[in-house]
Design a protein around this nucleic acid. Structure first.
Lengths: 136, 136
DNA sequence: TTGATGGATTAGAACTAATCCAAAAAACTT
DNA sequence: AAGTTTTTTGGATTAGTTCTAATCCATCAA
């Protein structure tokens, strides 16, 4: 790609977020390359490794802004840390608590049926399936 | 029941936990009556309301010991708080983030199929399904 | 019983992930 | 470039949880 910033730039513009240096850099780390799962701490380390100077507070702000803008999904698997997922397709996860690693399960072939209706006054926001792994 | 302590006592003995005053009291709050979902903070308040003097540290210890002993299940729905569930049957949950309330979904009629095999070197510990609710 | 022993409880300190804050910097507008 | 608004930042703060070290108590042996 001749102008590697273009894609991220367009993405930020599309959701109405100013393309600041930090958001561009974090956006590139998140969205260039394969789908990925990150924690705030993890992304902060990635940024550091990539020689991008960003404060942890900004990493948190950015992750939440991206999530609110629909660029990321938050995945709850661990009481005590939040994971963010760049894969926006409907899908589920393997979670290995030993490594803290998340692995996507495409929902293509997964079938779920028989869930009861949502209680009065509520509707289903989404269904999260987490397959917890353990040793061997 | 003539001796309301007997049941809890037997339960603690069965898993090799000493029947201390605190464990007995918390056990009664958890296991007498309907299935329930509690947070550490919540159980601590329940204990206070029931005139049982227990420190928060002991509530945490006890919840984890009960979990490790298989008397409770931990449910991860909220980054930042742990819920414990007295219902040990295979089942799933509705979660309403507004109220923080968990509702059991008996897994009887829920069918799930098509999950891929666990990655090399791991096996499935369990499958958690959380149906996240939102406003009407 | 009584005393010894090792697990259990406690208050408070420490820790971790996350959020808040006020000041400084950067991005837009004109 | 000047002025306005948004963003970033480091440090302080918070919430939930775990740790620590002193004390307490359930159990067991005598």
């Amino acid at each position: 790609m001749q102008r590697p910033f273009e894609k991220i730039l367009a993405r930020l513009r599309a959701v109405g977020l100013r393309p600041t240096r930090q958001r561009m850099a974090l956006g590139r780390l998140l969205f260039e390359g394969e789908d990925c799962h990150v924690t705030a701490e993890g992304l902060h380390k990635m940024a550091k490794a990539a020689e991008v100077r960003v404060s942890l507070a900004t990493v948190y702000n950015t992750l939440h802004q991206f999530k609110d803008a629909g660029l990321l999904r938050e995945v709850v698997v661990d009481p005590g840390r939040s994971y963010f997922d760049t894969n926006l397709d409907e899908h589920h996860h393997f979670f290995d608590p030993r490594s803290g690693e998340l692995i996507d399960i495409p929902s293509e072939h997964v079938v779920m049926a028989g869930l009861p209706a949502a209680p009065e006054g509520t509707r289903v926001d989404r269904v999260d399936v987490v397959v917890r792994l353990t040793e061997a």
